[in-house]
């Protein structure tokens, strides 16, 4: 078979295991990033001057944390967090061990996207809700979140794609996944075909995420 000729060193079992690990890391970290990012984004937005919970102390504190973590390159963040992953996850090997770094690395980025999405929500609509006597949590859950949904979805799509490349980097702590496989089996043993196969798989995963994200965002957009 042609594929065998082109990819002599590729073991499909390894490939599927690595794909599963990449998907596992991506999906769990996307969920974690979604939750943490929206909370941080809300905090940034609500405590801003002139907004519902205006509080410059909390706002600048949150902004500083977000900015600091965004400034740290992911590869260094992994190394920084390495001592804590055992404590947090009960292990420092395998896909699980990469999750804290993935979430902490991506959430600040997503938080900024969330903040921007909330800023795009029509002030008039928030005001209308206030004029009806809405409580703050009603405004959050029934106005801010639904009205910014398309931007929140396209934001998490971009973030998810960043996370996929982060999972590849997480290979350095032996997190597993396609990046790990490409590095350990492909690069170190000079089996270029393995690197190549891993690349194709990752590109396909990215495309699938982008496709799903675009479709969901379009579906949510009733403007």
């Amino acid at each position: 078979m042609m594929l065998r000729d082109w990819f002599p060193n590729v073991n499909m079992d390894d490939m599927w295991t690595a794909t599963y690990e990449t998907l596992y890391m991506t999906i769990i970290s996307v969920i974690g990033t979604l939750l943490l990012g929206i909370m941080l984004g809300l905090l940034l937005f609500l405590t801003e001057r002139g907004n519902l919970l205006q509080n410059s102390m909390v706002n600048s504190a949150t902004a500083s944390v977000v900015n600091i973590f965004r400034a740290i390159p992911f590869i260094i963040l992994i190394l920084l967090l390495f001592p804590f992953t055992d404590f947090l996850m009960g292990t420092n090997r395998g896909p699980k061990a990469a999750l804290p770094a993935l979430i902490i690395g991506a959430a600040p980025f997503y938080a900024r996207l969330v903040e921007i999405a909330f800023k795009e929500v029509d002030k008039g609509v928030i005001e209308a809700a206030k004029s009806m006597g809405a409580k703050t949590h009603t405004i959050i859950f029934k106005v801010l979140l639904p009205e910014s949904m398309p931007a929140l979805i396209s934001g998490i799509t971009v973030t998810a794609i960043n996370l996929i490349s982060y999972t590849a980097m997480a290979g350095v702590i032996g997190a597993g996944g396609l990046g790990d496989l490409a590095y350990m089996k492909g690069f170190q043993r000079r089996d270029v075909d393995v690197v190549f196969a891993c690349t194709i798989f990752i590109v396909i995963i990215v495309f699938i995420f982008q496709f799903i994200g675009d479709a969901l965002s379009r579906k949510a957009d009733k403007r």
Binding site: A128, E147, R223
Partner: peptide, 17 residues
């Protein structure tokens, strides 16, 4: 009290969602 005070706006301010 605001529930008993209706308000309408120049730009309608409806929730598009």
């Amino acid at each position: 009290e605001r529930q008993k005070i209706g308000m309408i706006f120049q730009h309608f301010n409806l929730l598009w969602s």
